[in-house]
Simulated scan of single mutants.
Amino acid sequence: MKPTLPARPDQILADAKFPELPNHYRGKVRDTYDLGDGRIVIISSDRLSAFDSILAVIPYKGQVLTQTARFWFDATADICPNHVLAYPDPNVVVGTRLDILPVEIVVRGYLAGTTGTSILTLYRNGEREMYGHRLPDGLADNQKLPTPIITPTSKANDGDHDAPLTPAEIVEQGLLSALQWETLSKYALALFARGQELAAARGLILVDTKYEFGVDRNGQIILADEIHTPDSSRYWFAQT
């Protein structure tokens, strides 16, 4: 029998505050501590966030999130280095401290989405040139793209909104060097291809996903945060 989570709907982790740990940062979902020695502790709470708001607290959501990311980090470690050092608890990952790159990377395989920066929203508004790509006329909602594309945006401050970027703008504005963009793009498309392959084997379609990258003290680009979780990705059932 496959292991299952215990039936404890009252057991929730709304916050993860530990006064003995330094440099606490509370995000929408995670509580992070910078240990000051090149390591960070990331604790996934049970907070559920959507559209930049905390909507609810769901029992074991943080544990499922951490363990789902763990599966994908393990399954893609041959493609791209990641920040993981240890998993001392089902909700916790200890990782390498990184300087997060100031560009949000979304890879899309389908004409889908609901936000103002999604390619479906922009396409419905009549735009065909977006994120450095040109999409043809006549595409239907949720249609598969000829090939997956990267749709980068700026990383907005709290209360602001991400803004679409082209690769040329990213380099011209000094957000990334040309070599960093080339490396990051290669990683992102390869990770997405692996994600689609493994999802398809389980009857799912990985429609689109968001990646977070940073650089370590040696300047190496590292995959951070999470990968291919329901918090960062859109999945469809392949049969329907």
Score class of each variant (00 low, 15 high):
residue 114 T to C: 02
residue 137 D to A: 13
residue 177 S to W: 00
residue 133 H to S: 04
residue 177 S to K: 00
residue 143 Q to I: 01
residue 163 A to H: 00
residue 174 G to Q: 11
residue 113 G to H: 09
residue 161 H to E: 13
residue 128 R to Y: 06
residue 157 N to C: 04
residue 142 N to T: 07
residue 119 I to Y: 03
residue 116 G to E: 13
residue 119 I to K: 03
residue 122 L to H: 15
residue 127 E to A: 10
residue 170 I to C: 02
residue 127 E to M: 12
residue 158 D to N: 12
residue 120 L to D: 08
residue 157 N to T: 05
residue 116 G to N: 11
residue 127 E to F: 14
residue 119 I to N: 03
residue 148 P to Q: 00
residue 174 G to R: 11
residue 175 L to E: 09
residue 157 N to D: 14
residue 124 R to T: 11
residue 131 Y to A: 04
residue 176 L to W: 11
residue 126 G to P: 12
residue 155 K to D: 04
residue 149 I to C: 00
residue 124 R to Q: 15
residue 121 T to I: 05
residue 157 N to Y: 08
residue 135 L to H: 06
residue 112 A to K: 04
residue 139 L to C: 02
residue 122 L to A: 15
residue 168 A to F: 08
residue 137 D to Y: 01
residue 157 N to G: 15
residue 115 T to D: 10
residue 162 D to W: 06
residue 116 G to D: 12
residue 157 N to L: 15
residue 149 I to A: 00
residue 114 T to D: 12
residue 165 L to G: 04
residue 120 L to R: 14
residue 137 D to M: 07
residue 140 A to D: 14
residue 169 E to T: 11
residue 176 L to D: 02
residue 173 Q to I: 02
residue 176 L to T: 03
residue 111 L to F: 07
residue 150 I to N: 10
residue 150 I to P: 03
residue 141 D to V: 07
residue 160 D to M: 11
residue 121 T to G: 05
residue 117 T to V: 14
residue 138 G to F: 03
residue 171 V to T: 15
residue 176 L to F: 13
residue 117 T to S: 00
residue 156 A to G: 02
residue 147 T to Q: 15
residue 161 H to L: 09
residue 144 K to V: 10
residue 165 L to I: 05
residue 131 Y to I: 06
residue 159 G to H: 09
residue 128 R to A: 08
residue 134 R to W: 04
residue 167 P to H: 13
residue 145 L to S: 04
residue 111 L to M: 12
residue 111 L to C: 09
residue 112 A to P: 00
residue 115 T to C: 03
residue 155 K to S: 09
residue 160 D to G: 08
residue 153 T to I: 09
residue 121 T to H: 14
residue 141 D to L: 02
residue 158 D to W: 14
residue 117 T to G: 00
residue 116 G to W: 09
residue 144 K to C: 05
residue 121 T to N: 11
residue 124 R to L: 13
residue 117 T to L: 01
residue 140 A to H: 14
residue 114 T to W: 01
residue 132 G to H: 07
residue 123 Y to P: 06
residue 128 R to S: 08
residue 142 N to Q: 12
residue 170 I to E: 03
residue 153 T to E: 13
residue 126 G to V: 10
residue 167 P to R: 13
residue 150 I to S: 08
residue 145 L to D: 01
residue 144 K to M: 13
residue 126 G to N: 09
residue 125 N to E: 14
residue 119 I to D: 03
residue 173 Q to F: 09
residue 159 G to I: 13
residue 153 T to A: 07
residue 118 S to P: 11
residue 128 R to W: 07
residue 125 N to T: 05
residue 136 P to C: 04
residue 174 G to T: 14
residue 173 Q to R: 15
residue 145 L to I: 02
residue 144 K to L: 11
residue 169 E to P: 02
residue 119 I to V: 10
residue 144 K to W: 07
residue 123 Y to N: 09
residue 162 D to P: 06
